[in-house]
Design a protein around this nucleic acid. Sequence first.
RNA 1: GGACGAUUAGCUCAGUUGGCUAGAGCGUUACAUUGACAUUGUAAAGGUCACAGGUUCAAGUCCUGUAUCGUCCACCA
Length: 697
Amino acid sequence: MDSKYQPQLVEEKIYKEWEEKDFFKASVNTKKEPFSIILPPPNANGSLHLGHAMFTYEDIMIRFNKMMGKETLWLLGLDHAGTETQFVFEKHLKKQGKSRYDYKREDLYKMIWDYVAENKNNIKNQLKRLGFALDWSKEKFTMDPAIVKIVYKTFKDLFDQGLVYRANKLINYCTNCGTSFSDLEVVYVERTDSLYYMKYGPFTLATTRPETKFGDTAVAVHPDDKRYKKWIGKEIEVDGLIGKFKVIVVGDRAVDPKFGTGAVKVTPAHDFNDYEIAKRHNLPMKQVIGFDGKLNELAGKYQGLRIFSARQQVVADLQAKGHMVKIKEDYVHRVGTCYRCRKVLEPLPKEQWFIKVKPLADKSKELIEKKETEVLPKRFKKRLTAILDNFIDWNISRQVVWGIRIPAYRCKSKNSWFISEESPKKCQICDGADFEQDEDTFDTWFSSAQWPFATLMTEGQETFDYFYPTSVMETGHDILRAWVARMMMIGYFSTKKTPFKTVFLHGMVHDPKGQKMSKSKGNVIDPILMIDKYGADALRAALIFGTKEGGDVALSEQKVIGMRNFVNKIWNVGRFIKMNSQVKSQKSKVKSESKNSEVLQELEEEFKKEKKQYIKYMNSYQFSKALGLVYEFIWHRFADYYIEQLKDEVINGNIEALGDLKEVYLENLKMLHPFTPFVTEKIWKVFNKESIFQEQL
RNA sequence: GGACGAUUAGCUCAGUUGGCUAGAGCGUUACAUUGACAUUGUAAAGGUCACAGGUUCAAGUCCUGUAUCGUCCACCA
């Protein structure tokens, strides 16, 4: 044994061996209790970051449960990440001076497919670097034909049961990226803009968006507002920039009399609140901005102008006309932006597919209440419940080519829709040939919402029955809404069971100052670089050690170094025992009884206590505490105290003392194995044993 | 505006049902060491446990309030 543990010489070989021996391959074994985790599928478009490294928690659970005698499955899959991947690819194209519009749908799809295929391997290799005990024989991809088939069936079932509908509603649309998003994908950003007070018939009203005035169909005031009460229900005439027009005045409680002038222009086609007001009062919609981000023919001479220049022009013209009362330039408000390109999202009316969420969310709440699904750490239970209470209908249509194309077809003669899992030969509505498939693809989250059951279903009924519902879903608390809640809704809908018995949430990885890591801040730590320098065990331990369950982790290179030192400590304790075992056999000394029987007794008792506590922590998902416990024991009790006490005897060849030390040490290696799999496996082999992964705790 | 979390050593954080001199990692200081490990050991310095009340024999831990920070959600015409 070297005096230093060198992970660089060890990890790759060991992982290869685990793979070759098929250690991670799970199969149905009715004699054993199943334990299954579905890996949150990484996006197949980039490389691994520290968020992925947090899946170490899953590896810990898998390895621990395996050592506790269960049949463990950790199923690996990758996500096509629709809009996200297409966006990454478009940036790629842009560098070559091209855009998505230069290619036909099929060609673009193919190009992205190849790009993704390359990246998949990259990600997979990086997952191996972390030492993850993933079942590589069951690898899935969200666009596998077998998965797509299930996704189609789910969509059709939802449709048949009235839980999917098509409607022309306001959606968040990015005119730059050319696609819509669900409400969850909107990123709100605080901005300082101008608030314009303009004359509007008999009113003065305040708006941040004067350019949308061509789409106004009403003015709204608070029903109890004495200033304006007399106008409610009346039609007013407004002298506009492109001629006079008439709108009705409505009374609506959504209007805050204290804000601005207490009177609001209602533009149902371009504002979510106004859309709601319009619904309540049966107001017409008038769309004046197109999906290209330009004003349309209804804007008269302003047609063709982009939103921002239209606003400047309209403001200038209103001022010229004397209709601008005042401009408050330091108005701070929040606008929805595109998480991809950061441009302001445009609320636009568009026909899309929506999932009726309420009935599904109610079922999910029941699962939580009945403890069919346990939420850990406990504090996230409230948050998940609140999320389920406030879910609005989910827009699942995306205008990108990279994704699972929606299997909906429009009958042209009847102008209505039918869903078909197979490519239809004829129209299922009129039996004719005149029908076309929806151009849109599913929101990525629609397929990932089905991940736990869809992946297992493709492995056959027996495997599904054995491993489903899965034991634990372990993921970041940041995607509680986008993913966890939706998995519960769709999972229960399709299988009538919770998709996972326990949800275990981990926190975000931050820098040492508690700041989020981001490229622009330059504080990003690359997990692979850390592994190269200090080994996977050190990185893994650094992510777990000294953290609160579900709390954020402040990671620094220093912390990884600290854990590297711990790993080296583990190694050197082994080295000490190994060296003295060899010396002993050479000298064949036979002083078998230790003079330190009290110390040995103490060691045995302390170890028993330690192991009991360890099992308790591990079974209650307190992994950080379990690691802390073993860390403390190995370093500050076993090495600093017991070895020091027994050192002289051991060096002089006392068999009893050495034997007892060795026994306790090997047991501790097993306890450490879920956390630091490589070094423990390596030492196990040094002691002429097979594989620690196959041992029982 | 609502919910949740945080506030403990210079820095990053543990401290599970209230119970002995409040802990870890990194950093600092002094000393030690050629045979497990300097990726080490021994020792030390450093905390009115955010603040103010309350419950209790006993509060970092429970309750109430205040302040500051963070996260998520909602609204902002």
